[in-house]
Design a protein around this nucleic acid. Structure first.
Length: 687
DNA sequence: CGGCCTCGAGTTCC
DNA sequence: CTCGAGGCCG
């Protein structure tokens, strides 16, 4: 067999052979030739393609390493939205989901839908498929006539990023699918095997580079590399788990589609199983959880799907979540480590806030060194001591939290003292006090404690208050320490001249900051009031007060009794608010801000005037909406007479669910609260 | 009195 | 997002 005879035929043969070897090696994990022999084949093909550029095809194995770097990724619109999944965190929720699915199907069947679901006996019953929920990056692969034409990330579910060049470098991604229908979209999870991740990190450390925090992050980061050669250097793999858009072929069940994918060169997890009974589903979830640590890939749960694809479609979509599938999430991971020290911070209102310094430990994929201890009472209740072992978790899988001492720590005969709040404020050294009836030890130096002032400035510039872009935590601290500002009002006296030349400031950034400070003067009165940081006036109460009393002058002149007339404000809050407002320091701050033309009058709609379409309705927002920001949505709901609260209860009329809706959506389902997506909300707003 | 709500605070990733 | 404390309201 000589290349000189017929280059085209030889090239085709090499491609076929290399495709076979790639599949054996990367998908089946069972190579049948040596690496050297493989290299010889690919080099021969490269040489051939270099000599005859017209022989180079986009599905050639040599094209797995893209040639040039991109400037940024093009948007890639999904043929079918890539939805997120509802979560079940307990067996009960999983059972509830199964029962609910079957109930919905039964109801549809009873309504005599002629093409209704298959019934077995009285109730609609179906089989379920359990699949590992791999912690990686969801991707979509689009094949036209069997050739990979586009690979995309999930993005917002509607539009992702075109990362075709990078996905081509993944050996488990077939570039060509023999016997594929006209159009085929395969969905899967790109991930970095644990062993490969460990190796990669060793190499990075050896090369003096920072190691990656966890396989998930490095997989996501690798795929979003602009230069595909970097991606090619990362040993990524991919599990295929479903078929999206499809033309020229159809599947009756999830199982059938997975079998097809497996037979056509995709890597499909071999432990995916089908079950007829709920008990088997639960058992499978437990089985995965037990094996979790021993797998070569990270999983954070199990996806349970209704096997019958027609039934899946019938179950429909609520919010952004298909009802035909659910993610059974493993309980948040905990870890054991040593509580090295209990430290204290000063909160905005002067509270001493304890936090834990921990011996660094991995908790569900990230390194944790600090964790909240909440407050003094909580600290006492938890019964932890410095130098002892504690259990750490991540609340909502995000915020590190000390749960309790370990059993071992509790068994110690001689335990250290219960950590006590400091006698002096850690920020200003003033003697702390603990009011008789209070839970918190406080720093009484409200006016000039640098800790409290920092918190006050941080709060004032924050997103919910004046939202001053370019003035974050770090700069606020630098300005305070540099003596540039002493209070929030001083922010409005910063000029381009004072800023230019300061550490980190050029002419441009100085101008930008001055501009955004100027812009913040347009923020509405309720934001200003909230920004003052008066105890008891959070975002909601600020809104209520400005609505009710309309102007700063009216508020300053109001007696506690008058303030109490505001909906949501009772006698206790009214008294403390009036007291704080009458303090000299508060008055002075307000007058200075007024001097800088901040809004002191509510120009919003008078709630008594309009009766909007949402009048008297309570809504809860959860997840990320496709278009509206949370603030926009809140504003529009309120303009329509509705109220937005933070948690779902019996009083909630609607839950508006977006991307990655959390527990609130689950709660809504449980209570039977009506769930809307953004379009549904907009429709309501229009009446 | 009990349910519901708001406030205030923390932290890590990108 | 999540939690505890505690105020508000029916």
């Amino acid at each position: 067999m000589s290349a000189s005879h017929d280059p085209a035929a030889r090239a085709a043969q090499l491609r076929r052979e290399l495709g076979h070897h790639n599949h054996r090696y990367y998908v089946l994990d069972d190579p049948d030739i040596s690496d050297a022999d493989y290299d010889a084949l690919i080099n021969e093909l490269r040489a051939l393609e270099a000599e005859h550029p017209d022989l180079r095809t986009s599905d050639s194995p040599t094209q797995r390493v893209g040639a040039r770097a991109l400037e940024r990724f093009a948007p890639a619109e999904h043929r079918q939205p890539m939805l997120s999944l509802a979560n079940a965190t307990s067996e009960e929720e999983l059972r509830a989901w199964v029962q609910r699915s079957e109930r919905v199907l039964t109801k549809q069947a009873q309504h005599g839908d002629p093409s209704g679901p298959t019934l077995r006996g009285q109730d609609a019953r179906t089989s379920f498929v359990t699949e590992p929920k791999v912690d990686g990056l969801a991707i979509s692969l689009l094949y036209e006539d069997g050739v990979l034409v586009r690979g995309a990330t999930r993005g917002d579910g509607e539009v992702g990023e075109d990362v075709t060049q990078n996905l081509r470098t993944i050996k488990a991604v077939p570039l060509r699918v023999e016997g594929a229908p006209d159009l085929l979209e395969v969905r899967g999870e790109a991930y970095l095997p644990r062993a490969a991740f460990a190796r990669l990190n060793e190499e990075r450390v050896a090369a003096g580079e920072a190691p990656f925090a966890n396989p998930r992050n490095s997989a996501a980061g690798s795929i979003r590399q602009l230069d595909p050669r970097v991606t090619a250097g990362r040993p990524l793999s991919m599990w295929a788990y479903s078929v999206g858009a499809l033309e020229g072929l159809s599947f009756a069940t999830q199982t059938e589609s997975l079998d097809w994918l497996r037979e056509h060169g995709f890597k499909v997890n071999g432990d995916i199983a089908r079950h007829d009974e709920l008990e088997q589903v639960v058992a499978a979830c437990r089985w995965w959880e037990e094996r979790r640590e021993s797998l070569d890939y990270e999983i954070d749960g199990v996806v349970v799907k209704v096997d019958d694809l027609d039934l899946q479609r019938r179950l429909g979509v609520v919010g952004r979540e298909p009802r035909g599938a659910i993610a059974w999430k493993f309980p948040p991971m905990t870890a054991t480590t040593v509580l090295e020290r209990v430290m204290w911070n000063v909160g905005r209102t002067g509270h001493m806030v304890p936090f834990a310094e921990l011996a660094a430990v991995q908790v569900s994929g990230v390194t944790v060194k600090l964790a909240t201890l909440h407050n003094e009472e909580d600290l006492k209740r938890k019964d932890v001591r410095e130098g002892e072992e504690v259990i750490v978790t991540r609340a909502g899988d995000v915020i590190p939290r000390v749960v309790s001492p370990t059993a071992k720590a509790l068994r110690r005969r001689q335990r250290g003292p219960v950590p006590a709040p400091p006698a002096q404020c850690p920020a200003c050294g003033t003697d702390t006090i603990k009011p008789e009836d209070g839970v918190w030890t406080i720093c009484p130096n409200r006016a000039s404690c640098p800790g409290q002032r920092f918190q006050a400035v941080k709060h004032f510039v924050s997103r919910g208050a004046m939202d001053i872009e370019g003035l974050g935590e770090e700069r606020a601290l630098a300005f305070l320490e540099g003596g540039l500002i002493a209070s929030t009002a001083d922010i409005y006296e910063l000029t381009q001249e004072t800023l230019t030349g300061l550490e980190g400031f050029g002419e441009l950034s100085a101008r930008n900051l001055v501009e955004s400070i100027e812009r913040s003067k347009g923020q509405s009165f309720h934001r200003v009031l909230y920004g003052l940081g008066i105890p008891g006036i959070g975002f909601v109460n600020a809104r209520a007060l400005t609505r009710h009393l309309r102007t700063m002058d009216a508020l300053l002149a109001a007696s506690p009794e008058e303030i109490e007339q505001t909906p949501g404000i009772g006698p206790i809050l009214a008294r403390t608010i009036a007291a704080t407002l009458s303090e000299e320091a508060t008055r002075e701050l307000i007058e200075r801000l007024r001097g800088h033309d901040l809004q002191m009058v509510d120009d919003g709609p008078d709630p008594r005037a309009g009766q909007g379409p949402l009048h008297g309705k309570t809504l809860v927002l959860t997840g990320t909406l496709p278009e509206l920001t949370r603030e926009d949505a809140t504003e529009r709901i309120e303009a329509a007479g509705g109220k937005v609260t933070g948690s779902v209860s019996k009083k909630t009329d609607y839950v508006v669910a977006g991307e990655e809706a959390g527990t609130k959506l689950a709660k809504a389902e449980q209570l039977g609260t009506e769930v809307l997506d953004e379009a549904g909300l907009l429709a309501l707003l229009d009446g």
